[in-house]
Design a protein around this nucleic acid. Structure first.
Length: 142
RNA sequence: GAAGUGAGCCAAGCGGUCGCGGCGGAUUGGCUGAGUCGCCCGGCAUGUCCGGCGACGCGGCGAUUUGCCGAGGAAAGUCCGGGCUUCAAAGGACAGGGUGGUGGGUAACUCCCACCGGUCGCGAGAUCAGGGAAAGUGCCACAGAAAAUAAACCGCCGCAUCGAAGUUGCGCCCGCGAGUUUGCUCGCGCGAAGGCUACGGUGCGGUAAGGGUGAAACGGUGCGGUAAGAGCGCACCAGCAGGCCGGGUGACCGGUCUGGCUCGGCAAACCCCACCCGAAGCAAGGCCAAGCAGAGAGCAAGUCGAGUCGCGCGAGCUUCGGUUCGCAACGUUCGAUGCGGCGCGGUUCGUGCCGGACGACUCUCGGGUCGGCUGCUUGAGGCGGCGAGCAAUCGCCGUCCCAGAGGAAUGACCGCUCACGACAAAACCCGGCUUACCGGCUCACUUCGGGG
RNA sequence: GUGUCUUUGACCGAGCGGCAAUGGUGCCAGCCUUCCAAGCUGGUCAGGUGGGUUCGACUCCCACAAGACACU
């Protein structure tokens, strides 16, 4: 197996794509929100985390929504080293979400940390190793 | 120079790094598919079998690397039109819907171009659902006499009759005076006998000139005419209908004659006329894989024609075994009709498919799947040139390939420049329309002012 | 993506080619009550936007906007 998790690439395998996956995250995931984003997380038994986006029509017209989605993908791509592995993350922006890249990155990283804590507190044995800087513990279990 | 009108074009640019989608190339010790050859270890239904292992080249997926391409003028709204696909095909009539000056363009249009007519503007130009109201039905509030065959009312006029006043004034018949153009005019007086008129009412008749209104009032002005009036007559003007002549493919325009003299508006009210329109939509449709559970209903009775086999009847021949011909229509085959089911968006005509017996049939209800491939981008295509046409557009030649995703590809960072960047992103594809929009550019034209 | 429909005061609804646009809930004021509630009286506030047809449009036609529903 290769070790793609530190690369800055963004292939389709690190994205939540099927309807069933989305439904599972909505049904069993934990939801964490702050002022600009709402994040739903669920462990996925994989070596990598995956990103899914749900941008409603309240976030503007098609151009604004596309721009927001692209910036969220860029944030995820750049911060994969800082994020824990093995999670499905569905991100829902709020209606008044700013599109500044730094703000989105900060929000995404901190929300993911809080989601990991909440998952750890919810289940007796967390299926996901809590690894905030990513390159220490995650890859061994697969 | 200022103000404006119309048409068309562009949609910040350049470079670098990382990342994303598609297509192509190279590499690959990862995964996988089918094939060929080999080994004979395994199975038993001993084979051109099944299975296993190895080698070879080929393909797919993945990984690495590399090259090219990668949202719009509106991609939008979904308001029209077409292609394409499925419904067997897309037929008639009616219903329903749409369109509405003429000619052209187009695959087609509610689009475009040119022209005609109306309205607006000094003008360049703009704008108009712009057929029919003397086929019919309906509506026109309030106001007004009346809102649509014109008639009733007020008014005006004539005739008849009644009443009141009963005398003054007016007018006439009479006398005097003044003036005078000798026609007559003015002033005064008289009588009240008579008559007429003036007043009011009623009745009959004539009339449409007038009647504050209203969005709109049954032609306008003048002269004649009359008891009063009237297109009743005449002249001019407006309008309508018809005929003729000329121009134009045509809408229509110009001229002329005649007519009765005149007929309101609304059809984006019903309607009439002409023309057009089958339905659904790429989540259409096709293929593969996976997966589930079935249940109910129908299959009845014929008719006609043809074929010929078996049977039956008749006739001929006969070696008495049969054989040939004809009839009949019992069985059978085919066709038609009828019947039943379903369908052709609604109704109907017409028509298509299936059904002759328990099925590999038809119909109804129910159940399962929500994966992959395809459709999927070469097209009424872009650019350039030449030609036809006033133009929309068309023809020919050359040249180019220019997104094809699928929880859905264009983002981030850095540097430079400027006018500091609007509205906004494909989802089967085109042609239009409409709406949004920072600004910039080009061409043609109009009006006004100044200069030569 | 495709198809269908709606829009009338702060809210729910009716209506029609000619009004000062009707009703209820609400809100405001007054009366009643010792006070409140209920009741009574009066008032307030309107046809999504822009064009067109018509003498006249909330109504008819067109365009746009906002919203809702259905299919899948």
């Amino acid at each position: 197996m290769t070790s793609p998790r530190h690369s800055l690439k963004f292939p389709k395998t690190v994205r939540v794509r099927s309807r069933l996956d989305f439904a599972a995250v909505y049904e069993r995931g934990v939801r964490i929100s702050d002022g600009c984003l709402s994040l739903i997380a669920l462990p996925n038994d994989r070596a990598t985390s995956r990103l899914g986006l749900a941008v409603s029509k309240r976030c503007g017209n098609a151009v604004q929504r596309n721009r927001l989605k692209r910036r969220l993908r860029e944030v995820f791509r750049q911060s994969r080293a800082e994020l824990p592995a093995g999670l499905d993350l569905v991100v829902q922006p709020r209606a008044d979400t700013p599109i500044k890249l730094d703000v989105l990155r900060q929000s995404l990283v901190s929300l993911t940390r809080r989601a990991v804590k909440k998952l750890a507190g919810r289940s007796r044995e967390p299926q996901t190793a809590v690894a905030t800087n990513g390159d220490s513990t995650v890859g061994d279990e697969s």
